[in-house]
Computed example of a mutant assay.
Amino acid sequence: MPGHVLFLNWRDTSNREGGGSEVYVERIAAELVTQGFHATLFCAAHRDAPAEETNPAGVRIVRRGGRHTVYLWAALCYLAGALGVGPLAARRGGRPDILVDVCNGLPFLAPLWARRPVVKLIHHVHREQWPVVLPPWAARFGWWIESSVAVRIYRRCRYVTVSEATRRELATLGVPPEQVAVVHNGTPELPRTDAERAPFPLLVTLNRLVPHKRVEVALQAVAALADELPQLRLVVAGQGWWESHLREVATELGIADRVDFRGFVTEEEKAALLASAWVALTPSLKEGWGLTIVEAGAAGTPTVAFREAGGVAEAVVDGRTGLLADDLDDYLKNVRTLLHDHELRQEMGAQARRHAGSFTWQVAGKNFASLLETADSPRRVQRRGEPSYLVP
């Protein structure tokens, strides 16, 4: 069925606030290009990239609007394209045959304005994040949009998510499980590195520095283990507006000299960092999958994460490729266990490498293409008793 697929996402990977969602969207789009699709990504504009470009994988990227206005710009550009003008006009690559509406809390509400099939891509439900990042009134409004309004607007659309955990949680919002397909992330190929395991206990956490990533937990782990492991160090890789607060916490805990806030790291730097770390920490409140977990696994590094943090319970095979914690005390205990038990750490690292290798972008791309082939228009008229979609 190859045609033109339009992805709507609030950011792209060149955006300084981009993360795993952006990696997933662009890698899937790139795989679709290899299968004969034309792929366009519409996202917010930012200072680090041009308004329009085609990336090396052949995905056209259109950037308009900002953090909050990209949603309106998407609708306006799509409707203008129907009139033959603007960046989404037919002369600029063909009118989209299908839209993939990526929901990072707030969706683009494409079924309201797009007369094409719409697939809703959601990495995880944001129930826990809203009150962490927004004032109470705004958090309640955002959750109402995500959990009620959006569910109704997308009721006839196919859904795709990256973990069974999210599929189950969507069911609690009223989205039938048979309407949701799971397409896992692939494991990104890290550049080759000559880096070796550090001769001292080294922890690493790769995150956007925002409250719901809970990097404070990683800092608390260092503080709790500092006396028994005098050489213990932590590298915090990533950037974000929460960094100043995290630096203050490190100072308050008396571990500022043990924590390296590395900021943005290149793929080469990330590969070296993961290869040299003893343990990777993912203390996030919620993840759809946990891309950094399998990246660490590809480097033979086990991860400690929280059991109730969504898809991480699938990215980490508890007791085999890392350890899952039930609460903060359990988290600190698991970090201590891995740092002290060399043989266990080595065995889990080897298992993590094999587990990470079982997820490929090629398979993910083929599964996503199959999903697109069965997507139908959200405006179609259903017969009474007819299921919205049948997902194998």
Rank of each mutant, 00 (worst) to 15 (best):
P135Y: 08
D318L: 00
Q231R: 15
V180Q: 02
K120F: 12
E252S: 12
L390Q: 11
D327P: 00
L371Y: 09
A51G: 15
S163V: 01
S358N: 01
V183H: 06
F200W: 14
A165H: 07
G357H: 14
V70Y: 05
A350I: 03
R67V: 01
G20Q: 02
T205H: 03
T205Q: 05
L371F: 06
F200H: 07
V5H: 12
E314W: 01
V279G: 01
N55L: 09
G290W: 04
E196G: 01
V149H: 01
V204D: 03
A29D: 08
L371C: 07
C43K: 02
K333N: 13
V235D: 03
A369I: 08
D257V: 03
I153H: 04
P188R: 05
L324A: 09
I255T: 11
G84L: 13
V133K: 11
F7T: 12
N334M: 06
G20P: 04
G36E: 07
A90E: 11
R214W: 05
G263Q: 10
T321E: 12
T13D: 11
P188G: 05
V217C: 11
R214Q: 15
D12I: 08
V85K: 12
T337Y: 13
R384C: 02
T374P: 00
D330R: 03
I145L: 14
A277I: 06
A275K: 15
N104L: 15
H4T: 11
V175Y: 00
G3N: 02
F264P: 00
I122M: 15
S358M: 09
V180C: 04
T161Y: 06
W361K: 01
L88F: 08
Y159T: 02
A277N: 06
G18E: 02
T166M: 12
R214P: 00
Q351I: 01
T321K: 08
N367L: 12
A313Y: 02
L234E: 11
R67S: 09
P56Q: 13
I153L: 14
D330A: 09
S276D: 03
G19N: 04
P177F: 03
R95H: 15
A49D: 07
L371T: 13
G19E: 08
G94D: 07
V149P: 08
A90T: 00
T205F: 04
C43R: 01
L8P: 06
L32K: 05
F37V: 07
V133W: 11
V70M: 09
V183T: 07
A89S: 11
A375M: 09
S370Q: 14
A82G: 15
E228V: 05
V265R: 12
E373Q: 10
